[in-house]
């Protein structure tokens, strides 16, 4: 068919063009902070709190959560075209808009994760807080460590899912419009959370614990990702068409094809490396080589998470309901 269109908006034609790396980064960092929040709760509560003992990650990771979240939110703020109106997010609740829940969710998550970070700060680190009222607050919140951890966990899961729901709610964009996407984004969030935890952790038991966690998460991701593509493939024509960029050899889409290739290589590599890690004997100190390997595999996982956000944000905009 020959098609001529007069009066096209560059923003939506030849395909949607609205969100770029800023939104991808927001989704990635949002997911990362959510995953890390979940992991910190686990760190504090698993084995009756035995893991966290002598582990600086116990207070560093919780501190990082609101920081990473803040950076993520900064990127989404950058993306808004009418920044001065941003307060309107909080003058209304739009029950059908994931972005509205998200903005409210973040509004809860931010102080919760902050309070949790305060509560988990040990005495010898209170000086970081500089001002007296904050120090007092930190001390006061310790009593609520447990409930805060629970809320932190719940919010982490919520935000993790939300980053996927945000995209999957768009009927108009078949690549995003899949119920599996939020699950994929959640598992990805958890795996990058665990990976970051490994990088922060100083003790072997914690590193190993989260390496094991990460193995499960990566495995889940490696199952869900093909499932997602399978789901798209067996759905409507537009859905099937929507995953084409990832599996096309045309050089127009080389970015997506290459990214998928990378993803399908680095996830298994990370997985294998992690399997080998837990097999090794870690009674003594880690050799610097072993440590480097561990960090590398964690980095691969983080990279994988970033690739997923970037490619899905962009490729989704190429797809169209037909």
């Amino acid at each position: 068919m020959e098609l001529t269109v007069t009066g096209v908006n560059a923003l939506t034609s030849p395909h949607l063009h609205i969100w770029d790396w800023r939104v991808s980064l927001y989704l990635f960092l949002g997911g990362l902070s959510a995953g890390l929040a979940v992991m910190t709760t686990i760190l504090h509560l698993r084995k009756g709190g035995a893991l966290v003992k002598g582990e600086p990650a116990g207070y560093i990771a919780p501190l990082l959560v609101p920081v990473i979240l803040g950076i993520g939110m900064f990127f989404i703020f950058l993306d808004l075209d009418r920044k001065l109106n941003v307060y309107w997010f909080y003058l209304t609740i739009q029950p059908l808009s994931p972005m509205s829940w998200g903005s409210w969710g973040l509004l809860v998550f931010f102080p919760v994760s902050g309070l949790f970070a305060l509560a988990s700060l040990p005495d010898d680190k209170l000086s970081w807080l500089m001002v007296e009222p904050l120090k007092n607050l930190a001390v006061a919140t310790r009593v609520y460590l447990f409930p805060l951890a629970i809320i932190n966990f719940a919010m982490g899961i919520f935000i993790g899912i939300y980053t996927g729901v945000l995209l999957s709610s768009f009927v108009a964009r078949p690549l995003w419009n899949s119920a599996i996407l939020p699950v994929l984004f959640l598992t990805s969030a958890l795996s990058v959370g665990a990976a970051l935890m490994i990088m922060i952790a100083r003790t072997n038991k914690v590193r190993l614990w989260f390496t094991k966690m990460d193995i499960w998460m990566i495995l889940a991701e490696m199952v869900i990702l093909p499932l997602f593509f399978y789901g798209q493939f067996t759905s409507s024509g537009a859905h099937r068409q929507s995953i084409m960029p990832f599996f096309s050899l045309s050089h127009e889409y080389s970015f997506y094809g290459f990214s998928m290739l990378v993803l399908f290589v680095i996830l298994p590599i990370a997985l294998v490396m992690k399997m080998l890690e837990i097999k090794e004997d870690h009674e003594g100190e880690l050799t610097s080589q072993a440590l480097a390997k561990m960090r590398l595999s964690a980095c691969l996982v983080l990279l994988g998470g970033l690739i997923i956000r970037l490619t899905f944000v962009y490729a989704g905009q190429l797809s169209k309901f037909t």
Binding site: T12, D79, L80, D81, N85, V86, M99, V171
Partner: peptide, 18 residues
């Protein structure tokens, strides 16, 4: 009231918005 988040642009299957 609009913050320019572009969610509506993505949501419209008709590409009616800019």
């Amino acid at each position: 009231r609009c913050v320019g988040c572009k969610a509506c642009v993505a949501a419209c299957p008709y590409d009616a918005r800019y």
